[in-house]
Design a protein around this nucleic acid. Structure first.
Lengths: 225, 225
DNA sequence: TGAACAATGTACGAAATGGTACGTTCAGTC
DNA sequence: GACTGAACGTACCATTTCGTACATTGTTCA
């Protein structure tokens, strides 16, 4: 257990400040993530972030220079977090078909479980990806994702259960699209079509659809009997 | 030809104001659409919209009360415009398979051609669809979309070329997801995977993938020879 | 022609907002 | 213990930004 709240102090004693740079920085980043992902770059307010932090506004500028830099760090931290989670997925010991099935289901659920991240990516796209463009960190983080899928795919082609000629990057695009949209457009879609998209039973349906759709697309046409 | 710019006047003559409420309103809405879709609700500035308009800031408030109401009207107008374009699609005279193919390709291209609309929908989702929820207009506009797809689908089931048991609404969800993502995430995807997604040849590839994927999903499994 | 109302221009106000100046306290080093 | 740089608090500033008050011009209709 590390040093905690500086406000907790022996009663009556004049409260002494306790320096804890690491946790202050982390706290700011956590609050900023919530605020930016909720309200966007222009919608989020530095003053509000400051209020919700244990630290003060001064500290935000001390560690992050300005609003846009704070946003960039938020984005980077978010990518780092999700890619770390994804790295836990181990597909090498599975047969290609099962591996792909597992990968798709994981991607779908993983997106659904990280709406903050999805929203940050949406917001970054609204800004034409100009912050992401500044970050070599994010670029490098994501290179591996395609390789994982590429391995599964080529194993499947070798085994004869997957069609030839598909590009892993395009395949990843298809899987991402279906998983991303599930989170990004849940509000408009639910309201327009009067459909509780986020209800567990509907989420299950969609996950099955998406998985099934991808597998049907990649699998070889049914072999003649 | 209707009344035009009030700035054009016989030389030397003291410029007289010409009232043209319809076009002023339309002009404001057009500029607001660009600004909101580019920068979001909180990012767009009323003053900037006013500057880019032939009218003045006063007029914005005169016709649209406040910023949020202007945004709502922008959103409604955008939905109206795209649904009108979609209504031109006539599928009844086509065989189910061709009709579905045509519908998917149309949806994909239509999204690609209307990035402003897509961005507004993204922005609306960032706001949890709370403005869309206020608009009965938008709700009613979209009801028909499912019916069109539903008709094609049931015709296909009747003909025996489509599988049974699929829900038109869920089918629409899948088609939307693939078409929407193509526009909404083009920036991050292009940058992260170093892939010119918007290049014509890649757009063609994606359109083919998406169409093929949907058709494979809906078609009956290959009939035994 | 002249009310009466709709449409428009100009200038301004109050609050919000990003950012900073300046001073104080903490923690490690000689 | 004195010194130094990092870590932090408070108060403040300049600008932006939404919105409005007030005056003026256009248009329609009796």
């Amino acid at each position: 257990m590390t040093a905690t709240s500086a406000t907790a102090s022996p009663k009556g004693t004049r409260r002494r400040r306790k320096n804890d740079p690491e946790s202050v920085r982390a706290d700011i980043l956590a609050v900023a993530t919530r605020e930016f992902s909720e309200k966007g770059l222009s919608g989020a307010r530095i003053d509000e972030i400051a209020e919700k932090t244990r630290a003060s506004k001064r500290m935000i500028y001390y560690y992050f220079s300005d609003k846009e830099t704070l946003y960039l760090h938020t984005l980077e931290a978010a990518y780092q977090k999700v890619r770390l989670q994804e790295a836990e997925l181990d597909l090498d010991h599975l047969a290609p078909l099962e591996a792909l099935c597992r990968l798709v289901r994981f991607t779908f659920c993983h997106h659904a479980k990280n709406p903050d991240f999805i929203r940050l990516v949406m917001i970054e796209n609204i800004h034409h990806g100009r912050f992401l463009a500044q970050s070599e960190l994010i670029q490098s983080l994501n290179a591996g994702v395609i390789d994982v899928l590429g391995n599964v795919y080529s194993r499947g082609v070798a085994t004869g259960c997957f069609r030839e000629g598909l590009d892993p990057r395009e395949l990843h695009w298809l899987i991402s699209a279906l998983s991303f949209f599930n989170v990004s457009n849940q509000h408009t879609f639910s309201r327009i079509f009067d459909w509780q998209q986020t209800a567990p039973e509907n989420q299950q349906k969609l996950e099955d659809h998406v998985t099934d759709m991808v597998l049907r697309y990649v699998r070889v046409d049914r072999e003649a009997p």
